[in-house]
């Protein structure tokens, strides 16, 4: 494309920055993302104005095609940050890319006014600019996806870090209700706090409830086995409760041998067994 037309586009962008900004903010305010109140009007204005300034700066040298060139570094980075933060506050992918795509119409309208007597220039400029915005929209989208993955990772981390309380339900009876994934680091900490509690509470029965554990693979099974073995060495018998039929079956298929340990389907059954072993009886009060 002719150099002159490219400089035309950058020229229009610079000259009409304020007009474009106002129209763009107005268009975005009508979009569902804003209507839902995910960001404030002030944020919208600031973010739009910052982006447009960076865009004007990036195209100033006449490059409207190669967004990997150094003059686009700043805008790429700022877009990526914006998408990541929008992903984390609940913007959908389309709401996030609309930030860029909503600019297209506005700019085309401005170009129409500028070049209404020169159709060729208008069409060319429109195509070049639409192309540029598409590229930037892709940057936005990619950053959005990364941002979502980040959110998922964080959520999982907090799941992993859920504290696991050891509860003393009765003299000599401890309950360890496991919830979430009992993988690696967390499993080790759980095991340590359980063994500690056995000593401090002088308990002889430990109920480990895995109702809230979504998957028991050989690693989790081996952690459970080791924990129960260690408890036994310290004089406490373990009862493993909350094994769903599906999980029991899967454990058997895996070839993990739980036969040395007592298991019960529900926490209730486990507690009843513990009471019985300690020769305790729960009865209804008379009267």
């Amino acid at each position: 494309m002719a150099k002159k037309e490219v400089s035309n586009i950058s020229g229009v962008l610079v000259k009409k920055e304020k007009e474009i900004l106002d129209a763009w903010i107005k268009a975005q305010a009508d979009l569902p993302a804003f209507q839902k109140g995910l960001i404030t009007a002030k944020q919208l204005e600031e973010e739009s104005s910052r982006f447009l300034k960076l865009l004007v700066k990036a195209v100033a040298g006449g490059n409207l095609e190669d967004i990997t060139a150094p003059e686009y570094d700043e805008i790429n980075k700022s877009l990526a940050d914006l998408s990541t933060s929008r992903a984390s506050i609940g913007f959908s992918p389309s709401e996030t890319t609309n930030f860029i795509l909503s600019l297209r119409q506005i700019f085309i309208r401005i170009l129409q006014k500028e070049f209404d007597d020169r159709l060729d220039t208008l069409v060319n400029a429109g195509l070049v600019f639409a192309d540029l915005l598409d590229k930037l929209a892709i940057v936005t989208f990619e950053a959005y996806v990364k941002g979502r993955e980040e959110v998922i990772r964080e959520q999982q981390k907090s799941m992993l870090e859920l504290s696991t309380p050891v509860i003393q339900v009765w003299d000599e009876i401890l309950i360890l209700p496991l919830i979430g994934s009992v993988d690696s680091a967390r499993a080790k900490q759980i095991m340590e706090s359980l063994l500690e509690s056995i000593v401090t509470t002088k308990s002889s029965m430990v109920i480990i409830d895995i109702t809230g554990v979504p998957a028991v693979d050989t690693e989790v099974a081996s952690r459970l086995l080791r924990t129960m073995q260690a408890a036994r060495l310290m004089g406490a018998e373990s009862i493993l409760t909350g094994l769903s039929p599906q999980i029991s079956q899967t454990i058997v298929h895996l070839g993990v041998d739980l036969s040395g340990f007592v298991t019960r389907a529900s926490l209730r059954d486990g507690l009843e067994l513990a009471f019985r072993k300690l020769k305790l009886k729960v009865t209804k009060a008379e009267g």
């Binding site: 999982q156 992993l160 979504p214 998957a215 039929p245 599906q246």
Partner: peptide, 27 residues
């Protein structure tokens, strides 16, 4: 190790969506 959890969740979702029963989902 968190990715292990992620892969597992993806597998469960897909198994559920394809119509596998609870036992097979777990397997």
């Amino acid at each position: 190790s968190e990715d292990v959890i992620l892969a597992r969740q993806v597998a469960r979702e897909m198994a559920k969506k394809l119509g596998f029963g609870l036992a097979d989902q777990t397997r």
